[in-house]
């Protein structure tokens, strides 16, 4: 698509939407939101950018193939699930830091699990969309 408005807007919208997606990810434990929705929003941000500026530009911006986010996300989720086992607790037991951290709030293994979900969702969605639009 070749509209100057969308092109200009998408440049500002991409970081804003990404920030928003992280915000949605972080607030998920108390208010509506979470890794899944956050990931989808981030994916939409990139798709919007790709629509306005062309797929090649977005891919250049991302540097890595979005597919690599999937194993990274899976690994983070798996590790956060396994971590309690080192303390002899069952798989997926929530671990929490006793004092809250500024900005993020209280920190627990569930957050890392959600970050993993977030990355996998971005990776999977973008892999599918980019692959389909690349194929001629």
């Amino acid at each position: 698509m070749n509209t100057i408005i969308l092109k200009t807007a998408s440049k500002y919208l991409l970081p804003l939407l990404l920030l928003f997606s992280i915000f949605v990810l972080l607030r998920g434990h108390y208010l509506p939101g979470g890794g899944f929705v956050g990931g989808l929003i981030a994916a939409i941000a990139f798709v919007l950018h790709a629509f306005a500026n062309g797929l090649e530009n977005t891919q250049q911006l991302m540097r890595i193939h979005p597919g690599f986010l999937m194993p990274v996300g899976l690994l983070i989720s798996a590790i956060s699930g396994m971590a309690p086992m080192l303390l002899n607790k069952p798989f997926m037991t929530g671990l929490w830091k006793s004092d809250p951290v500024p900005v993020i709030g209280s920190l627990g293994s569930a957050l890392f699990f959600d970050i993993g979900v977030y990355l996998v969702v971005i990776g999977a969605t973008l892999t599918i969309l980019f692959t389909i639009s690349e194929t001629r």
Partner: peptide, 21 residues
Amino acid sequence: MAKGKNVVNVILVDFRGADTM
């Protein structure tokens, strides 16, 4: 048990975390 107020998300990441995995 899971220190979250959003029940939906707590189910996803904690109670049924293995399913989400």
